[in-house]
Each structure stands twice: as C-alpha cells, then as structure tokens.
C-alpha cells in the first residue's frame, strides 16, 4: 500500500512502494497495448494540472494517463488565470480544491511547492517537477524502463550524465536507484555537481569515459542552454566534447547498455543523434512507459484513505 495521499518525491517512498507502483504500471502497460485503451477505475474523478512552468510532455502524459483511467482532466492554465494577477499560490491551490478536483498535479520552478500544497490541501498532490528537487514520475518511468530491460536493480551500474546540480530528474533517479540497490555514478563537470552529493551513496566522476566504464544503463540529462552564460561552462561545444554521448564514449559501457533521456533532447549538446536514434536508445519507450506509470500513480493514490 501507498502510505501518503500525495506523491511528493521518491525521497518519501519506500522500496516496497516503488515496486508496487512498477508492478501496477505493468498491468496498465498491457491495457495500453490493447485496441481499446480505456479502463474505468477513476470514473467520476477529476485531475487538475497546475503548471507554473511550461511542459507539453509531462502534461500530455498525465492527461492521457487520466483519460485512460476514465478520469476528467482539466488544465488550470496559469498564464491566463488570476495567478498572473498576483493571486497567491495558496489561494490558487485552495480554488482548485474548491472546484472539486481529486488530484492536483503541480509543476513549479521553486523547490518545495508540492510540499506547501500538501500541507494546505486535503486532495492528492502529485509532484510533476519542483525546482531542482524532484520529478518523481520521471524516475518511476525510468525505473520501469530499466526493469523491462535489466529485470533487476541490485548491482546494476547506472550512470547519470550531465547537469546534475540543476536536475530534479537526476535527484529522483538517484533516490530511486539507491533505494533499489543499484550502483549510481554521476558524471558531470565540477561546476554542475551538487554540494556533498556523494553523501547520497553515489560515485562522482568528472571523466565521461571512466564514468561510463562497464555501465548497464546510461541516463542523459537535458542541459539548460543558458548554463553557458552563467559561467558553469565555457561553451556548448566544449561541453559536448567532454560530456556528450557519442558512439565513442558510449563504447566504454557494456555492449548491452541502454541509453535513456527524459526529453526534450538537445542533439549535439548532451547526446549525438547517432546515439539518440541508435539501437541502444530506449528514449521513445520511456515516453510510452510514462503513461502506464502515471496511471499507476493515480490509481494507487486514489486508493489511499484521506
């Protein structure tokens, strides 16, 4: 059983809860493979998305997940709502609850916003990405994808490559992978390494080739292109040379290593097209799995006593 009414982060989940979500997602993946992709468990429920940062991918994935479960999905459009008129986050959240929503999906540039809403609201809060804190459903879909290829997590060598310091995807994946007893290596320049991150039980590498040696899974991260102007990097060209996933760098990994990316990709910056489109890439499967995993999350949270 899931303990909390909310999904705030992987940090707050037990390994058992992660496995429960993955197992449940497997059932929904079968549904998605059918001709008629709709099941009834959330009929009459309403899912509202509250995105303070643009994201077509995550929002669409959640919308499809909601609809496949027969829930109503409503987008609370931040740019056109009163949020721009200076309404506080708290008032916006209470309004959504008063409108009768059962779930609110929140994405915000500031870490901790889902936690703030969780304290204010009785309905389920799902973190769809907060600042540099977490993006739990992304990590869950990544775990689902890894499991489908590698069958187990224990002892698996997983490299996460790129801008770890600003990445909520990396953070959620670190928590998930360490909870599931995989070996995690972070490969990043020192300027993009979070403070004291080794205390999370991960190895930190600044050399891509050494970091990728014998790994089973390579997770690339999206680089925000403005990092260059802030002095984190001298140039995108140099970044690609040092940390870009290319045929050459990926050759250091195991032959059957899979390559993942949360999207959207900057081709030629963090990943070469030959790798993104190559036979080790599972990037499009991640997208499909995302719907199944988000269905599982909605389904399981709906069963939590409030």
């Amino acid at each position: 059983m899931i303990q909390s009414k909310d999904l705030l982060g992987i940090k707050e989940l037990t390994p058992e809860e992660i496995y429960l979500i993955l197992d449940t997602a497997a059932g929904f993946k079968d549904v998605l493979m059918r001709d008629i992709k709709k099941v009834p468990p959330l009929r009459g429920k309403t899912v509202v998305s509250l995105f303070f940062e643009p994201s077509t991918r995550t929002k669409t994935s959640f919308a499809l997940a909601s609809k496949r479960l027969s829930a109503d999905f409503v987008n609370f459009s931040v740019s056109t709502s009163s949020v721009v008129k200076g309404e506080s986050l708290k008032d916006t959240a209470l309004t959504i609850q008063a409108l009768g929503a059962d779930f609110v999906l929140v994405r915000h540039a500031s870490s901790g916003v889902p936690h703030l809403l969780s304290n204010i609201l009785d309905i389920s809060v799902i973190n769809a990405g907060d600042g540099a804190n977490e993006h739990p459903t992304q990590a869950l879909l990544d775990m689902f994808t890894i499991q489908s290829y590698k069958k187990k997590f224990k002892g698996l060598n997983v490299a996460i490559v790129g801008d770890i310091a600003h990445s909520r995807v990396a953070k959620s994946n670190i928590y998930a992978l360490t909870k599931l007893e995989a070996n995690v290596r972070l490969i990043c320049p020192p300027t993009l390494t979070p403070a004291e991150v080794d205390k999370l039980g991960v190895e930190v590498h600044h050399s891509l080739d050494k970091g990728l040696k014998d790994v089973d899974v390579i997770m690339a991260l999206r680089l925000q292109l403005e990092r260059q102007s802030k002095g984190f990097l001298p140039s995108l060209r140099e970044y690609f040379k040092l940390y870009g996933l290319t045929a050459d760098s990926v050759s250091h990994a195991k032959d059957d290593a899979i390559v993942m990316h949360p999207g959207p990709m900057n081709r030629g910056v963090e990943i070469a097209s030959s790798i993104a489109d190559g036979n080790q890439s599972v990037i499009l499967e991640q997208v499909t799995n995302g719907i199944a995993v988000r269905m599982a999350v909605l389904y399981l949270l709906a069963g939590v006593k409030k």
Binding site: S111, G112, A132, N133, A195, E196
Partner: peptide, 13 residues
C-alpha cells in the same frame, strides 16, 4: 546554506 541539505531539498545554496 550550500551543502548536503541544499542538495537534498533542491534549493539554491
């Protein structure tokens, strides 16, 4: 404060 906690909470240190 920049340190392990800023990493955990994802807030700028």
């Amino acid at each position: 404060n920049e340190g392990f906690v800023s990493t955990i909470v994802g807030l700028k240190g």
